[in-house]
């Protein structure tokens, strides 16, 4: 159990480092999928198989597929080449230090918080989660539904090809209707 937790945690961190340092979009997306699956493994190790399954299905499955589609749709090779010049070590220093300081602050706060609970791998079943969700958390479920609907409408509006605003800039391209 512990070994699974620490190993997959390590994989998650390394894969995430791969995400933020990579230059190729496709590689980065794959790194991110690895990272998400590793976090799913962490969930299994912690004793939350339902969350782990959801993580794989929704995150690594659905959301990342969306990313892959978009990456395939756009021609990102010039960007990937430019990315090398954008990510100059000089520019890395400040933000990295800032993130490190923030991490230090978080860790210090964790230490101060004095959490001493130990997770012994006791399972939290989907049944318990479902009872909570459709009991006291019903309102949150409704809100999530509305949020998804809003996101659907927004995405289909913003993602239109023939946006009247950019017609001037894309004037020489074939004008398609709303896809």
């Amino acid at each position: 159990m512990e070994i699974a937790f620490y190993l997959s945690g390590l994989v998650a961190v390394l894969a995430t480092v791969g995400v933020i340092t990579g230059t190729s979009p496709v590689h980065a997306v794959v790194y991110l999928i690895v990272s998400l699956i590793a976090v799913a493994m962490v969930f299994f190790a912690l004793g939350a198989p339902f969350a782990g399954a959801l993580e794989i299905i929704v995150y690594a499955g659905a959301i990342m597929v969306l990313f892959v589609f978009v990456v395939m749709m756009l021609n990102l090779r010039p960007d990937a080449e430019r990315e090398l010049t954008w990510t100059h070590p000089r520019h890395w220093l400040g933000p990295s230090l800032l993130a490190l300081v923030l991490l230090g602050a978080l860790l210090a706060l964790l230490r101060q918080g004095g959490v001493s609970e130990v997770i012994d791998g006791e399972l939290l079943t989907a049944r318990a989660v479902g009872l909570t969700l459709f009991g006291p958390w019903l309102m949150v479920v409704e809100l999530a539904a509305i949020l998804l609907l809003a996101a659907l409408v927004t995405a289909s509006h913003v993602g239109r090809r023939s946006n009247p605003l950019n017609r001037k800039m894309t004037g020489n391209r074939k004008r398609g209707g709303t896809p």
Binding site: L98, L102, A105, L106, L109, Q112, G113
Partner: peptide
């Protein structure tokens, strides 16, 4: 984003360094 993170870090540091903790 950098400015926002800077502000958040300052606040968190302040909380972490205050003797007696936050809890």
């Amino acid at each position: 984003a950098v400015v926002m993170v800077f502000g958040a870090t300052v606040i968190l540091l302040a909380l972490a360094l205050v003797p007696g903790g936050v809890a």
